[in-house]
Amino acid sequence: MTDYDVLRVFCAPHGGYGNELGVVRDGSTLPEPADRQALAAKLGFSETVFVDDPERGVIDIYTPSTRLRFAGYPCVGAAWLLDVPELVVPAGTVGARQDGEFCWIEARPEWAAPRTLRRYATPAEVDALQVPPPGDWLYAWAWEDEAAGRVRARGFPGRGDGIEEDEATGAAALQLTGRLDRALNITQGRGSQLLTAPQPAGWVELGGRVFLER
């Protein structure tokens, strides 16, 4: 079995919650895309990262069913683990920095696969949602405190690869920030925390806590 680490990305202040991420630190052990896809499907995480060059931050990202040009929480997790100033993904170069308990990346919302961003009137409505039938990637959100930029959100991939609800979705947070053009403090899933901040020229910073699970 290929060696891999498991991180939890976008954890709550006490260290709980967060989205599990598989990271194969030595991507050369599985150089072929088909083999990487098979391992990602076997592991079953929302995403699995293969590190192709740890010094330059070159990574390759897979869901259980497809390869991604970019994804938010895998980049935050990989940036924290590799401790590099940037990552290189097929979509482009992702800036990275550490700031106390938070790891931040800077990316463009349009790099991510499209999500349906659906606003609800109250957080209670978001909490009450049932997993929808397979279909579009749904990011359900509502203001908890609009003046403070606090958002309640849940993510439903709907892509039929066995993941009914995504605990923390960095790409959707980037897209929502790009749409609203303001900094956000997002609580997603059971209690994961994602922070965002718009930057000049359409870039967005995305940050969160990362813990090494095993």
Rank of each mutant, 00 (worst) to 15 (best):
E55C: 11
E55N: 12
R56E: 14
V58E: 11
V58H: 12
V58W: 10
V58T: 14
I59T: 01
D60A: 10
I61Q: 01
Y62S: 00
T63F: 04
S65C: 13
S65L: 02
S65Q: 08
S65N: 12
T66V: 15
R67V: 07
L68R: 01
R69G: 15
F70N: 06
A71E: 01
Y73S: 13
Y73R: 12
Y73V: 05
C75R: 04
V76R: 03
G77I: 03
A78P: 03
A79C: 11
A79M: 07
W80L: 00
W80S: 12
W80M: 04
L81M: 12
L82N: 07
L82V: 06
D83R: 14
P85A: 11
P85L: 12
P85D: 13
E86V: 08
E86N: 13
L87A: 09
V88C: 10
A91E: 01
T93G: 02
T93D: 05
V94I: 15
G95V: 03
R97I: 00
E101C: 10
F102D: 13
C103R: 12
I105H: 01
I105K: 01
I105N: 03
I105D: 00
E106T: 15
R108D: 02
R108V: 05
R108W: 01
P109V: 04
P109S: 09
E110I: 06
E110Y: 03
E110V: 04
A112D: 06
A113D: 06
A113G: 06
P114K: 12
P114Q: 06
P114R: 11
